[in-house]
């Protein structure tokens, strides 16, 4: 499948990107404005948001997938699996 050409994608989605960045900025401002803002400064959820924001600056692509991984629990391939009953 052919994705939109980059200039066309920018034309089509610039306003959506602007809107969503403003929404995110407003959410972070809302947290800052609230009483006890200092108490949540070390909340691991805010840490994940900060890490996700760093990914947005990275130009190497796959940002959505990498941000999903930031918000995901680790997987242990050695977990104790139940056995099928043949």
């Amino acid at each position: 499948m052919t994705p939109l050409a980059a200039p066309k994608a920018l034309d089509s989605f610039f306003l959506e990107a602007r809107c969503k960045i403003l929404d995110l900025a407003a959410i972070l401002d809302r947290i800052n404005r609230g009483q006890g803002a200092g108490a949540v400064d070390n909340d691991p959820r805010l840490d994940k948001i900060r890490k996700a924001l760093e990914v947005l600056h990275d130009q190497s692509g796959g940002r959505a997938e990498r941000i999903q991984q930031i918000f995901s629990l680790d997987y242990d391939p050695g977990w104790d699996k139940p056995k099928p009953r043949y």
Partner: peptide, 21 residues
């Protein structure tokens, strides 16, 4: 959902792949 999805999906696929039926 959410933070459990990646781990849970991998676990589900582990269980399915070990089942030779």
């Amino acid at each position: 959902h959410l933070e459990d999805k990646y781990k849970g999906t991998r676990m589900i696929i582990d269980m399915l792949k070990q089942d030779r039926r």
